[in-house]
Every structure is written in structure tokens, then in C-alpha cells.
Amino acid sequence: MTSNKEIDAAIIERIKKGDTHAFRQLVDKYKDVSLSLACAVLKDKAKAEDVLQDVFIKVFHKANSFKHQSAFSSWLYRIVINTSYNELKRDKNHLKLEGIHSYEPLTNERTPIQNLKEEDQKKYVVLALEKLKPDEALVLRLFYLCDMPLKEVQKVTGFTSSKIKVDLHRGRKNMEAVLKNLLGNQINDLW
């Protein structure tokens, strides 16, 4: 059976020859996860999409420099993360993150979670992740959404393993706090 890494390698070889159809295939495969990672850092979907456009253009031009030493996804995510952090640094006017205890609930009357549709549940979780610090949200997404082992997260982010463990722990705790703040006791219905 052909592994994911081999499939990506074959696609990249085609991209190196200038095949834009192969490039489209690669973009469609990775764009959503990449957006989630960029959003974890930038907290702004429109800005994250702009960053992603730049990232994929960079990938298209630099495909020749990809040596297949690591998985393509790790290479791509590293570029996404670095570009997002650079954008965050450049954007001097970005909103300072509020303290975790100062979040206001979405509405005065809390909606019973069992009445929430899947889409609304997603909205609350996305909102909770947006309230986390960029490092915490990023590590949570890499670990749980991309199913990356700790070592791979370390490679992709450049964080130390102890920082990753701390961010994972704090991320989980803070996410729970934000969700509790948003949903009250109804949070228990989420799980």
C-alpha cells in the first residue's frame, strides 16, 4: 500500500516539473489544516488566508528545495507557522490578548448545549481556541487535530518538549475555562 508520504513525494516531483494540476491537488489536501494552524496564531481568518496564499506561492517556487528528508506536511506546517508568527510580529496593531478570566459569555441567557447544532458547537470551540494564546492554540491543534506526536510538534514549532507539555496542559485548562464562561454548566453536555 502506498503511504501518504510517498503520495506527497510523487505529487511534489510533478510540481517540480511545473505541473499546476498536481499543485492544486496538494493545496486542496492541506489548505484546511494549514488554515487552522495559521488561525491558531493570527486569530483572524481573513488574515490567515492571506498568509496561506503567500505560503503556498512560496511552496510552489521552492518545491525544488524540498529534499524529502521529512514528511511534506511537516515542511509545509513549519513554513505556515513561521510565516504566521512573522505576520503577527509585523502587525503592530494586533489586538492584545485579553486575560483568560475577562471573557464575556456570548449571550446573557446561556443556550442549552443539547439544543446546539453541530455547527454551533463548532462555533463555540473555535471561539474558545481563538481566546487562547497563539502558542497554546497552535500546540493543541498540532497535537489533536493533526495527530502529531510530541517529537514532530517539537520539530515543526521549534519549541522545547517541556514548553509543548506545559502549553498542552494550560491550553486544555484555559479552553475549558473559556467554554465554561461561554456555556456555563451546560459545558458538561459537550462531552
Binding site: 493545496v27 484546511d32 488566508e49 463548532k122 470551540v125 473555535v126 489533536y144 487535530l145 479552553m175
Partner: peptide, 21 residues
């Protein structure tokens, strides 16, 4: 956490790839 974060996956705008190409 894993279950919740999996729900939080985002999607790009429909014309993202076309714009890029």
C-alpha cells in the same frame, strides 16, 4: 479535548485555490 478540537477544523473560502493559481 481531542474530540472538541477535531470539531474545530476550519475550511478555506471556496475560491481559495482558484485565486492562488
Amino acid at each position: 479535548t481531542k474530540n472538541l478540537i477535531r470539531k474545530s477544523g476550519m475550511t478555506t473560502s471556496e475560491d481559495f485555490t482558484d485565486k492562488l493559481l
